[in-house]
């Protein structure tokens, strides 16, 4: 699969990574090479093969639906680049 500039720009938007226009061609080439490499998988007939969901055969454990922690607001905010009055601060979202 050869990706074009527009597709790469769209992937970058979906991934929320700013990519400058002058990087698009090189990136399209790199990503296309990787996709060509992984497309070898099309040689394999996988009809009826169950996709792996868990590498170790086990039942997902369950526990009672109870609060097990909390009251650690300071710890949670300690690493925030910007925090204010007990909240994470972000650029204005609502006009």
């Amino acid at each position: 699969m050869a990706l074009d500039r527009d597709t790469v720009r769209n992937i970058a938007t979906l991934a929320r990574i700013r990519v400058e226009d002058n990087e698009l061609d090189a990136l399209a080439g790199e990503l296309s090479n990787i996709l060509t490499f992984v497309e070898q998988l099309n040689e394999v007939d996988t009809k009826g093969v169950e996709p792996m969901t868990s590498v170790v055969a086990m039942q997902l454990p369950r526990r009672p639906d109870e609060v097990t922690d909390g009251n650690i607001q300071n710890k949670i905010l300690a690493n925030a680049p910007e925090g204010t009055r007990g909240f994470f601060a972000v650029p204005k979202v609502v006009e």
Partner: peptide
């Protein structure tokens, strides 16, 4: 892509 790769994983296992 993703489902195909997971099927291959089953075959490898």
């Amino acid at each position: 892509y993703y489902n195909k790769a997971r099927q291959i994983r089953t075959l490898i296992a």
